[in-house]
Design a protein around this nucleic acid. Structure first.
Lengths: 242, 242
DNA sequence: CAAACAATATTGGATGTCCCACCTTCTGTT
DNA sequence: AACAGAAGGTGGGACATCCAATATTGTTTG
C-alpha cells in the first residue's frame, strides 16, 4: 500500500515514527481547535509535550511546512498555515526533469493530467464566468500578444491567463493544483527547448481559446484548450525518441 | 552548477535557505545522472559536499522523502525514490479536517476536484479499456455487493474500483493523485458520518457506474460518476450548516 | 563443503548543547 | 510625540555523542 518495491520489515519503524510524529502535531492542532493563522507552541514546548528531541521535532515540522500545514517564521513563531503547494511543485518538477533524461513517462503523465483538468473543467468555469472575469481573461491575452509582438516571452501572462480562466469556479485547491502543474509544465518546457520563434503563434493559440470561451462554445473551448498542450507533448516525444 | 557555498550575506530568509538546500540535493541527483533506485551519498558526505550540518541536511532530506524524491532506509542508505504521495495525502487530509471545523470550504473543493478529474477522464479511460480491465472493474463491484450484503464496509473494494477504472490510461501520476483524493475523501467521510445504513445503495451506485462503462455510454458514465459524489457533498453541507 | 550463526562495519535515527540570526516589544532619549 | 536602541524570545544551525537497523564478512558447525 505504501510503496511498491522492496518490502522490508523493520524499515517501517523509522519511517513510521516520523509520520506518527507529524500526525501527533496535526492532532494537537486539531485538538486545540487552532485555526489558520493561530500560533503553535514553541519548538521547545512541542518537543517536551511530544516527548522527542528538538532536532527530531524540527524534521517533522519542516515536512509539515513543506506540506503547507504550518508556517514557520524565524524569530517570531510557528503558525497554522494556509495551503501552500510550492514544495509539491518542486518535487514534481524534479520528477519531471528526472524522467526526461530517460523515458519521459512522468513528464508526459503530468501534461496529460493538466490537460485533462483544464480541458475537462473549462465548461463548468464558463457557466459561472462573469463579464468582468471574461474581460480579465482577454486582458491577459492582449498582454501576451503585446509581449509577443515585442519579442519578449510572456511567462507571467501565460500563468495569469490560465488562472483567470478557472477563477470562476472559486476553488482555491484547484487553482493551486493548476498552478503546480503550470509551474512544472513551464520547467519542462524550458528543459525541452521552448522553440522561442513561435511566440506569436502561442499568443494566437490563447486568443483562439479566449474567443471560444467568449462565444460560449464549450466543446470548442475544450478542444482548443486540449490542442494547446499538443505542442509540448510532441516536443517531449522528440526529446525521448532521439 | 550546484552553487554549493552560496555566498549569501543576508536577505535570504531561513525558508529560502531550506528550499535552496533541497534544490541543491535535487540538482546533485540530476547532475550525477542518477536514476530511480540509485544510491545517494551518505548523510555525512552530503553534508560535507553541500557545506551544511548534518541536522540541517536531514531536515531537507526528510522533506524530500515526504515529497517522494528520495527513499531513506535505516542502516542501508538513501536512494532516488519512485513517486510517493502518501505524505501529501496526510497534509491534504489535515487541511480537509481542519476546514470541516469551520466553513468546510477546502473539503468541498477537494470533492469538487476529485469529481472533475474522475468525471472528466472516464471517457478517455473507456476508450482504452480492455476486456480484462473491464472484468476487473466488475469484480470490484461484485465484491462491494457481497460485503454490503454481509453488512460490512468495503473501503478497500471502493478504492480498488476507482483505481481500476482509470488504470487503462496508464498514467501513474493520475493514479497517485486519485489515490490521494480518495484517501482524503474517505477521511472526510468518516469525520462527517458515513451513514452506514446505505451500504447496499452505495454498492448499487457503483454497479450502475459499471453498467454505463460496460455499455460504452461515456456521457452516462460521467453523469453517474458525478452523481456518486453528490451524497458526500450534501453531507458536508449539512455539517457546515448546523 | 555448505549452511547457519555471530561479529562487525556502515548507515541512518535521535538527542543535548551551544551559539547565531531574526523579530517583536519595551524603553529611553531626543 | 517620534525615533533609536536594548532586551527578550523565537526559530536556525552546527557538532558531538550515542542508539538502532542493515548488509557484509568471518567463523563455526553439521
Amino acid at each position: 500500500m505504501t510503496t511498491s518495491g522492496v518490502a522490508s520489515k523493520a524499515r517501517f519503524s523509522a519511517q513510521a515514527r516520523l509520520r506518527a510524529l507529524q500526525a501527533d502535531i496535526m492532532d494537537l492542532i486539531l485538538e486545540r481547535e487552532l485555526e489558520a493563522g493561530d500560533p503553535l507552541p514553541t519548538e521547545n514546548e512541542l518537543a517536551l509535550a511530544l516527548g522527542v528531541g528538538r532536532n527530531t521535532l524540527r524534521e517533522s515540522l519542516k515536512v509539515l511546512q513543506a506540506l503547507g500545514v504550518v508556517e514557520i517564521r524565524h524569530g517570531f513563531g510557528m503558525f497554522v498555515a494556509p495551503s501552500n503547494f510550492d514544495a509539491l511543485a518542486d518535487g514534481m518538477t524534479f520528477r519531471g526533469r528526472l524522467s526526461l533524461r530517460h523515458k519521459g513517462d512522468e513528464a508526459l503523465e503530468l501534461v496529460d493530467v493538466r490537460q485533462a483538468l483544464e480541458s475537462g473543467l473549462i465548461g463548468s468555469a464558463m457557466d459561472k464566468m462573469t463579464a468582468g472575469q471574461l474581460a480579465a481573461v482577454e486582458e491577459s491575452v492582449t498582454r501576451m500578444e503585446e509581449l509577443a509582438a515585442a519579442g519578449e516571452p510572456f511567462v507571467e501572462a501565460d500563468a495569469e491567463f490560465h488562472r483567470r480562466l478557472f477563477e470562476p469556479l472559486n476553488n482555491a485547491l484547484l487553482i493551486s493544483l493548476l498552478a503546480v502543474f503550470w509551474k512544472v509544465y513551464r520547467q519542462i518546457h524550458l528543459e525541452v527547448g521552448t522553440g522561442a520563434e513561435d511566440l506569436s503563434e502561442m499568443a494566437a493559440v490563447h486568443r483562439r481559446i479566449y474567443e471560444a470561451v467568449a462565444g460560449g462554445d464549450k466543446a470548442l473551448a475544450a478542444e482548443r484548450l486540449a490542442h494547446h498542450f499538443d505542442g509540448i507533448r510532441h516536443r517531449i516525444y522528440e526529446v525521448i525518441e532521439k
